[in-house]
Design a protein around this nucleic acid. Structure first.
Lengths: 343, 343
DNA sequence: CTGAAAGCGCTTACAG
DNA sequence: CTGAAAGCGCTTACAG
């Protein structure tokens, strides 16, 4: 690859061809102020003619930027990982940035997580990190990054949102919409399969759901089951909820994966969805259409979350001081897993 | 980050502390030959004391290596992407390499794919690429990389395996085992849901399956349906295969995803798996246990494929000239979607 | 608004 | 087996 690179035009080549100094070429390339239109035109022409592309390693060595950002995530059983990756990749590509991946184990101790981060930072330069859940709510990681003045943005944080630029969806409101939807369909005995207490989103969904029920149907009976966002949790919760006497007529599971688990429990128990029990998920992951019947759920624009998180990291702060918080919209996706009790 | 980096110990610091030249430190760090044990010990001690880590950007700028490799994949609907990523990431981490992602659209023209690769290579230095399916069978990409003398390894290639180091599973043999298994359970009217003709693996699975049937049960009736590895294809194929008269008693779908589609078709048609029809998938993706009944399938060690592909890229060729081909084992995973006709 | 010089932290020839 | 010098291709102060 060395030979390949040694034939590439350099900044000096561009400078020679344009008849200007290297510093001026650098100014144009970096979009700095105080460049006359005339000079810029000459440089741009030379760049185009030579097909010049600045060398990443040299920029990184000489300057403070690396044009590379890292996505911190846990691939373990997360349905949204791929979409997040897609969104972040797109934003990077658009801005000629590069995307690196750090796959960490969210169940590991903070100590070992920070150790790994330290290793990563020592080995290389990075313009910043995108923290995916559940790292987006990890204050130890945030403290560590802030101490070292490393920029970061967060995807779907639930705590201290003002602490960094971040992108999220209103989980509580979305869960509230599901509550409203189920109540509007006549359900008054409702089961709730909770998500991982480690994820703030699970808390927000629970709270939003319960608050809305309390508000619009205070007479409703609620049964809760613990969960951890996993398929197996959905199976267990479904059996617990539906195996007892006086089962709920509708169940809201905190994510699609555990909703699929509930469906599995139904299949095992010989209970029909939605004839015997209605079911809602959350995420609108591709899983929602890999079950039968298709799952009614809330759509989160996951790849948009990834894209915006990357964009916020790449674009310099606009100087207004305050980090940006971006809330993206969600939407209830009606499919076939809920029936109306009134009909 | 600049301030952070300027405080890091450099190679010169280590040289000073050890009382040797910078070149000697470089030799030790790079594990070069012709270093006396005594000198190496001094340098190692100084490195440990200072906590020295070589700077990636500087190494990359000065030398021919970048310690970064890129995984070329298409995230679109591929169940194995995450596992591949996990495996490749692990191998990189172990060797202090960094993993970058390029997410390309496999349905795009070769021209636009190569254009993007060119962009990527111009922007930065890369020690090589891992080609994931279906790029592992894309000769245009291989030609392009070879012309530029860029190293690459391939995951699950089906053609020209000698052309690069690669890692794969014996798809034909694995499909043959499924054939044998179904025949041993008494099935003689068998459906086959094919995979994407774009993926060589689909061809190999079909051939392996048909050949084995012809060998051990030449009297068996076979019905084929086209497919493209997608869930929807499984639904369509399932309906086509099972909606007609004299339906098969067992179906082999070329991947788990389309097998899930077949299950969906069964649910829609009121057909029970495995009571009315038996079903096998391929991959043992996590989907296999997100359906009911759990899917009997063939397990591919996907994260191992990713790990080995990265390892082959990172480790220099051993100089024997011939690229390495590594075949990893597969195994039939018996679950609950197949029943024996004899009982 | 523009430029000449120094330097980022390594590796590559080249000597010895 | 070991080292002194040059250079990779940029950006950063610093001048003007």
């Amino acid at each position: 690859m060395q030979s390949d690179h040694s034939q590439r035009p350099t900044l000096a080549d561009v400078a020679r061809k344009a008849g200007v100094s290297g510093k001026s070429v650098s100014r144009v390339v970096n979009g700095e102020a105080y460049v006359s239109a005339e000079l810029k035109a000459k440089v741009d022409a030379a760049i185009a003619e030579l097909g010049y592309v600045p060398d990443l390693a040299a920029r990184s060595l000489a300057g403070a930027r690396s044009f590379t950002i890292s996505l911190l995530l846990d691939t373990n059983g997360q349905d949204y990982v791929i979409q997040l990756l897609e969104g972040a990749y797109e934003a990077c590509k658009l801005n000629s940035y590069h995307l690196r991946i750090e796959n960490l184990d969210a169940t590991a101790s903070n100590e070992s997580l920070l150790e790994r981060l330290d290793e990563v930072m020592r080995h290389s330069r990075l313009d910043g990190f995108i923290l995916a859940p559940p790292f987006s709510d990890n204050t130890a990681i945030m403290d560590w990054l802030e101490e070292r003045q490393v920029r970061f943005t967060r995807v779907a944080p639930c705590i201290e949102r003002e602490r960094s630029p971040c992108v999220f969806v209103d989980d509580a409101a979305a869960a509230g919409e599901i509550a409203q939807y189920l109540v509007s369909k006549g359900h008054r005995r409702i089961g709730l399969v909770n998500g991982s207490p480690r994820h703030g989103a699970a808390i927000a969904r629970r709270t939003g759901f319960l608050d809305k029920i309390a508000e619009i149907a205070p007479d409703a009976e609620l049964v809760e089951a613990t969960g951890n966002f996993r398929f197996e949790d959905g199976i267990d919760a479904g059996k617990a909820l539906l195996g007892a006497g006086n089962p709920p007529t509708a169940i809201f599971a905190a994510n699609d994966r555990s909703a699929a688990g509930v469906m599995n429990a139904c299949a095992q128990l010989g209970i029909s969805v939605p004839d015997d029990v209605s079911l809602c998920g959350f995420d609108d992951s591709w899983l929602a259409k890999l079950v039968w019947p298709y799952l009614t759920t809330v759509r989160q624009p996951v790849s948009d979350l990834g894209r915006e998180a990357a964009r916020l990291l790449i674009e310099k702060d606009t100087g207004e001081g305050a980090p940006k918080q971006i809330m993206l919209g969600h939407s209830l996706i009606e499919r076939d897993s809920v029936r109306s009790l009134d009909q």
